[in-house]
Amino acid sequence: MVTAPAITVSGLSKHFSGKAAVNAIDLTIHHGEIYGFLGPNGSGKTTFIRMLCGLLTPDGGSGSCLGHDLVREARQIKRKVGYMTQRFSLWDDLTVRENLDFVGRLYGVRQRRDAVTNTLRSYGLADRAEHLAATLSGGWKQRLALAACLLHRPQLLLLDEPTAGVDPTARREFWEELHRLSTEGVTVLVSTHYMDEAERCHRLAYLADGHLIVHGSADDIIQTAGVTTWVIQGATAVHRAAFAQTPGVTELASFGNALHVTGRDAGCLATHVPSQARALGLDARLAEPSLEDAFVYLMRRHAQRPPT
């Protein structure tokens, strides 16, 4: 059983009024792994996560979660999974403590009162225990939501954009907590839009309109993309046009006063980009392509794929 993956799905699909929100996804996630889910809005991240915890019924493919069949054994899965919804979905008119207490009852948590008190303390919520959930700020709501889905000590955490709208410090603490849980053996599937968070995951998957276009570790993905990036220091919007015309360049992205020039043909870039930069009186430097450079390239390639 130790070697069995926490989640394995094959050909998993879900359609809404004829349109595929999740399109035949194959994926395996191991125990104790922090698995990142990336992709633009509407790419199917939420739909995929909802199918994993029995909130949506797949209409194609099959899969299992913690050794239980996705469709037939949704109830067993629910007991062992903590799901944090994209939108805050605890009860606004209950206090922090009442919310935790209620969730504890629903999961039949043993020694519930102690468990709630301990959770309040370890998540720094003790001072706000008697506040109504509605009155909490975004960061505190996120903490409460995480605390609520960990109360029953789930083996798998499904977190849907948990850090959207949360300040950097709170995000950092949140990720420390995820890594601590991961070392305890909890499997985490987390969707995010932040590249720095993506880099903190053990492995990643990138979704685009329901398709899984790439997956693997951050390094794997950069490798797969096979892109080369040059950084032009001091380039402004005026210079962009010149680089857009340069042979071999497929992507341009501005970062402060640096311009990232990316392409797949390393040789072509090496002959043309530095000379172009010199001609403009700028300095070009070969850089490690970032995860974002890789995603941007893969997205575009996916969008330009021949219709199937």
């Binding site: 909130l55 629910k78 805050f88 979905s89 009860w91 629903l106």
Partner: peptide
């Protein structure tokens, strides 16, 4: 309407 139903559904209730 408040979105709490999704939470309720994800529990074993």
């Amino acid at each position: 309407e408040r979105g709490t139903f999704e939470n309720l559904l994800s529990t074993p209730a």
